[in-house]
């Protein structure tokens, strides 16, 4: 059982961003992708979520054997168990967090079944408390006027409420101060389980001090070019990415 990406190619417009990406995350593990700006990390997250701006030109992604690209609409993929925490979460004026998450949970219920409101709010408050999100946020519009850190916490809150099988966290550490980073990481760590896989996309090794990965991958120019254990992240932090590119060229 795994999240398996095979020979994935994707374009934005005519420009190819993902150029044959391979990756497998067995259930129960946390994998990290590191890479420079422009290497295609965020594209990978958006392509999996089904963002309409990207075109998949080849390859496949499967969730426990289920072909993601058979599900055309992003909402189908989400309901199938994929969650993507976005680098830049959208603001939705006039739609409260409580109503937003509620609609997302309601969408997972069979036709005609109503979400139990009391139970829902109980669960929501519990998870907000754990993420140190003030309960008054339930009646605030989704991400509107939130600080960077508040937006990221709100992403993790959504993840906690939706209980995905595989979660992709795209630069969840950006915009976080050290306290927020710890809170968000604790939220993620609390969800680690043999029944769930994580892909953590990040720029910096810092996040991986808190969310310790089983495997670290390095992404260069739309491909995974190197994989290793968590010490690879330390090496990248200390030495940068140039040696990776040289080594890859040498091997090629």
């Amino acid at each position: 059982m795994s999240l398996k990406i095979e020979n994935l190619h994707a374009n934005i417009g005519v420009r190819e961003i993902l150029k044959g990406l391979n990756l497998e995350i067995p259930k129960g593990q946390v994998h990290a992708i590191m890479g420079k700006n422009g290497s295609g990390k965020s594209t990978l997250a958006k392509v999996m979520a089904g963002h309409p701006d990207y075109e998949v030109t080849g390859g496949s992604v499967s969730l426990d054997g289920l072909n993601l690209f058979d599900m055309e609409e992003p909402d189908q993929r989400s309901r199938a168990g994929l969650f993507v925490a976005f680098q830049y979460p959208m603001e939705i004026p006039g739609v409260t967090i409580a109503n937003f998450i509620r609609a997302a949970l309601q969408a997972r219920l069979p036709e005609g079944e109503e979400l139990d409101a009391v139970e829902y709010y109980g669960e929501l408050y519990k998870k907000m408390d754990a993420l140190k999100i003030d309960r008054s946020f339930t009646s605030r519009a989704v991400n509107e006027g939130f600080s960077g850190g508040e937006k990221k916490r709100c992403e993790v809150l959504q993840m906690a409420m939706l209980n995905p099988v595989y979660a992709v966290l795209d630069e969840t550490d950006s915009g976080l101060d050290i306290d927020a980073l710890r809170i968000v990481s604790e939220g993620v760590n609390a969800m680690r389980s043999p029944e769930r896989g994580f892909l953590v996309i990040t720029h910096y090794q810092r996040l991986l001090e808190y969310i310790v990965p089983d495997v670290v991958h390095v992404m260069v120019d739309g491909r995974i070019v190197m994989s290793g254990d968590k010490t690879l992240a330390h090496k990248l932090e200390a030495e940068g990415y140039d040696w990776v590119e040289k080594e890859t060229l040498t091997n090629a």
Binding site: A49, G50, P74, D75, R79, I92, V95, A103, A104, Q158
Partner: peptide, 18 residues
């Protein structure tokens, strides 16, 4: 906005309505 809601599992029609 529509994509963000769909990415959370909310079908397009319902997302539009919200």
């Amino acid at each position: 906005e529509l994509f963000y809601m769909e990415a959370r599992g909310i079908a397009k029609d319902q997302a539009r309505r919200l």
